[in-house]
Design a protein around this nucleic acid. Structure first.
Lengths: 312, 312
DNA sequence: TTCTTTTGATAGTATAAAGGTATTACATAA
DNA sequence: TTATGTAATACCTTTATACTATCAAAAGAA
């Protein structure tokens, strides 16, 4: 049994296809097939049931695949230990970011990070929280920036900052004359929301639920970007809520429509999340340092109340 | 990096000697040296400092060795998974037993176990609790039978039975006329004890401490076997305490000197202990089944008070 | 010091393992 | 039926692993 064989097994288990698994492993299909067979021979069991198309994993196979994941992960950690010892911060690093954070936060830290750590090949992926969690579990991304707390067993969270919700209330809206908002003022019925799958949407719904203005009806308007929401809002279709960082780039003509919440302002907790195995932890820590250093100061709010990003 | 290379590294780390490590790994010394070098080259660090005699492990080396232990252990678990699937109970299995349990318990279960699981090659080692713990950590023994609770982080304990302490009070002793003992009756000053290193000794001392009759003076008489203690006791050198199972084989002429404790009788908890990684867990469970099945009935005491086997 | 002894590294070679190309076998779908 | 996708097999090359023999360096003994 070799680590390579286990990696091949993992590739086949993931893609359910020897040919594709071989490509992803950068070897030919016969090479991979032979190694998987050799492992099966050595253990004298079948890991894959090749009689079905697509191939399936046997019951023993499932257990072996789980254990193989452990072993391969622990083996990669050896390289981590060496890198840490050498003070080397480099190599591929895949970072996921949720769509509602990406456009505002990424420009703030990207240049600084790649200048400070030129040997890190940073790969950024924009994905929903749900997909980020799955990809962290599978090891396809090394860390992600998302709204927390998530309460996922295998994920560690390191808070980066707390970002208050800000109301965008257009001229004709019933709340127009208020100086500041209170959660109780909100009604789910006249708030424009992002599409399903955005956790900021869940946060807003949780906020309305908490203030008892939630009646579980279907929402008529949904959009994928805050820019659209603001524009729809201006058209008289209701108010909306924006994360604080998204309000900084608004036109002055629109900024007058912003209404802040009374303290403690509802806010989302934005964290760097990663697998509890802490692979590539030095790069993750470096990233956290850079982002916290930059965000500190950009967000001055002290007294906030965290709204959960997950539907309950 | 291969699992074999990691195993070689572990062997060298353990024996601090390439030649010996090679023997224990059943390869020649150059083979092992080359593989270790290859790993060092691949990682571009030194794991061992060969300039000193005996060779030492570098700082990075220590971390790598720790991680290598993980990996090798997790890899062995694959075979475990397969064995479990096949319902196969077999292979080498090393069991440690503390000296005060060995002579009474081993004869009770050994025949039954080797008949029921003929494919298991059981290797029994008699060692102190301290050594058992170290050997469980190093993976040199698969499980052990010892007095618990031990409160060791990496060890799991499965209680087998609770064995009461029984007083052996000779004719001329101050407690001779009591029908039953109470812990308060005991004085550390007239109890014969086993040598240092036996945890049953610690248990007795803890029992005396708990009853405030402990004055921390040096004890004059110590022995390595209960038989000696009983004989010394008969010579008028004080009373002694025996584990219940040890009293069963006494002569009738000696049995009259036995005095049981009032309920709840002080007792030691005897457990099967093993590494939390649960390697070879099927055999461990099989062993536990056999022993519990046999001991149940042999010890009828219900109401006992567990005395800790470790000095505090 | 000088001569052994111990112990790890190196050289050279045989064998086994891993990887490649070409081809075959066997499904499933058209 | 044929065409297509996919895994297995045959066969060859390269690489890795393990061996024997030997060397080099350090530690101990004379």
């Amino acid at each position: 049994m070799t680590i390579t064989q286990l990696q091949y097994v993992l590739a086949v288990a993931e893609h359910q296809n020897f040919t594709l698994a071989a490509q992803k492993s950068f070897v030919t299909q016969p090479t991979l097939s032979m190694q998987v067979q050799k492992l099966e021979d050595e253990l004298d069991i079948l890991i894959f049931d090749r009689s079905k198309k697509p191939i399936t994993i046997t019951e023993v196979g499932k257990k072996i695949v789980e254990q193989a994941k452990n072993i391969v992960n622990e083996a990669e950690r050896i390289k981590d230990i060496v890198d840490q010892e050498k003070g080397f911060i480099g190599g591929d690093y895949t970072l996921g970011i949720i769509p509602t954070i990406m456009p505002t936060l990424l420009p703030m830290f990207l240049k600084t990070f790649i200048n400070k750590y030129p040997k890190v090949n940073l790969i950024i992926k924009e994905q929903s929280t749900e997909n980020l969690i799955r990809n962290i579990e599978d090891g396809h991304i090394d860390a992600a920036i998302a709204a927390t707390p998530l309460e996922v067993e295998f994920i560690k969270e390191r808070p980066l900052y707390y970002e208050p919700f800000v109301g965008y209330v257009p001229n004709n809206h019933r709340l127009k004359n208020l100086d500041n908002l209170k959660p109780e003022d909100l009604s789910i019925n006249d708030i424009l929301l992002l599409q399903d799958g955005h956790c900021f949407r869940e946060g807003v719904i949780n906020l309305c639920k908490a203030s008892k203005n939630y009646d579980d009806e279907h929402f008529q308007l949904q959009s994928g970007s805050f820019e659209t929401l603001v524009n729809l809002s201006d058209e008289g279709l209701g108010m909306t809520l924006l994360p604080y960082l998204n309000t900084l780039s608004l036109d002055d003509t629109k900024k007058v429509n912003l209404k802040y919440f009374n303290a403690p302002s509802p806010a989302r907790e934005v964290s760097l999340i990663y697998h509890k195995s802490e692979l590539k932890i030095q790069i993750t820590e470096a990233l956290r340092d850079v982002i916290s250093g930059i965000v500190r100061g950009a967000i001055a709010f002290q007294d906030v109340k965290i709204i959960s990003p997950i539907s309950k």
